[in-house]
Amino acid sequence: MKPTNTIKKLWLCALTISALGFSACEKEDAPECSGAPAIDRVTLPTKRTEAFTTGNLADWVIIQGSNFCNVSSVMFNDVEANLSDAYVTSTEITVRIPRVVPKNVTNKVTVTSEAGTAETPYTLSIPPIEVAGLSNEYASAGQRVAVVGKNFDLYGISPTSGKVLWNGAPVTVTRATGDSVYFTVPANATPGATVKIVDANNVEKAVPGRYKDDRNIIFSYDTGTSVWNTNTFITQGPVPTPINGAFIRVNQRIGAWAWTEFSATNTTLSNTIIANAANYVLRFEVNTLKPFSTNVIKFSIDGDPGGSGANTYLWKPLTPFNTRGQWSTVTIKLSSLLTVPLDPNKSQHEFKFLFHGDGALDADMSFDNFRIVPKD
């Protein structure tokens, strides 16, 4: 064989092997999707190897499987996820569950592409509407107030859908968020009025509390009684603007563990309340011109606020509490305060409300309308 022919043959062989190798590489790099999508499991970004069959609205999840190329939709029940925020590969879909209440609950997640559809069992926890009460039960007629709670947006309570009923009559919703529904107190509002909210499906839910509830008022600041029959801290305003006549304003520096009573008296308490404390709450209005950021406010009934802490509720600000000059209603479960049953044979019971705790506080807090009322 001539050398030139040998070289030619070797060169042709090399080309053949190269072509075969290229052909084999093309086959391995063929499209990763070759059929309808299939779902293996639903996981979490922080637990990618663990399968989950339940979740919550607004959770981020990873759908693992195969053939996710050209996915056109991902459905949780009958609600479509937003794929523009999703990260999709051939084997995973990282997507956020929509924060929308489904109308048709199938308890499934469904993935659809041009090649077909796959589904797997997946149950979502649907949170209910939670209604805490009015932001200010003593707001004046014509003043803006809010029903406060959770998940109002999920149930379609907005200026264009849903309702607020004041003593059964609808009032205009001026603004709504997930945790607040705003409206204006009617001009003809009278004490004792009740409020309800109605969602987009026409389901009513009562708002705890009554407007300007004056049942079982503990301290009557209008008669000049605050701390043991004195007028300590009592003011008529004008700063802040009074909410219901005279009120308490504590505007001073309170040292750490300085015993500072701002309301204290002996008064009667019905045996119905004593026997059914779990059915009652302590409710009042508060206004802060400076944040309540440290120290502790103690509410005590026949208690030991300076010692064992019996029958004493501690209000500790985990984060600064600040109403920014607006009056706001606060509710405390009476059962959280009364750790020891009250004596029904006592003619009067000792109430002490005071600052006493760690951390010096530059206080400017006002209080009014302390009352014990049914929790509704």
Rank of each mutant, 00 (worst) to 15 (best):
Q64W: 04
S34P: 00
R41K: 15
Q143A: 15
N67M: 08
V109D: 01
A118N: 07
S34E: 11
V101Y: 02
V61D: 05
A51S: 15
P121S: 15
T123Y: 01
K47P: 00
P37V: 01
A139V: 10
T120R: 09
A86G: 07
M75Y: 11
V111C: 02
G55R: 07
P98L: 02
E114L: 13
V105S: 07
V88T: 12
I93D: 01
V100D: 06
G55I: 13
I97F: 08
A115D: 12
Y122E: 03
E137H: 08
R99T: 09
V131P: 00
A118L: 07
I129C: 06
R99Y: 14
V131K: 01
V100C: 05
A58L: 14
A86P: 05
A132M: 11
A139S: 15
T89C: 09
F68A: 00
L83V: 09
V74E: 02
A58D: 15
I62N: 06
T89E: 07
I97E: 03
F52Y: 15
V74Y: 01
L44H: 13
D40W: 00
R48F: 08
S66F: 01
G116K: 07
V147L: 12
F76P: 05
G55Q: 12
A132V: 12
T46F: 07
L134V: 04
T91Y: 11
A81D: 00
D78E: 12
L44W: 09
P37G: 04
T112K: 15
R144A: 13
I126P: 09
N56C: 14
N70H: 09
Y138F: 15
I93E: 03
N104T: 15
T43G: 03
E130D: 11
G142S: 13
T43P: 00
T91K: 14
V61P: 06
D40A: 10
S113C: 06
P128F: 00
A139P: 02
S34C: 04
G65N: 05
V95I: 13
S135P: 02
N70V: 05
A51H: 09
K108C: 08
Q143Y: 07
D78K: 11
L124H: 03
S73I: 00
L83N: 07
L83M: 10
P121V: 10
P98Q: 04
T43D: 04
N67Y: 01
A139F: 07
D85V: 01
I39L: 06
T53W: 02
V145I: 15
S140H: 12
A81H: 00
Q64T: 14
Y87P: 00
L124Y: 01
T49H: 08
S84F: 07
S140A: 15
S72T: 15
P37L: 05
R96G: 06
T94V: 10
D78C: 13
V147W: 09
T54G: 04
G133W: 04
A141Q: 10
L57H: 09
I62M: 08
N136T: 13
I63K: 01
F76L: 11
S135T: 11
T110N: 08
V74Q: 02
V74P: 00
V145W: 01
G65S: 05
L134C: 04
A141F: 02
L83W: 08
N56E: 15
P102V: 12
W60E: 14
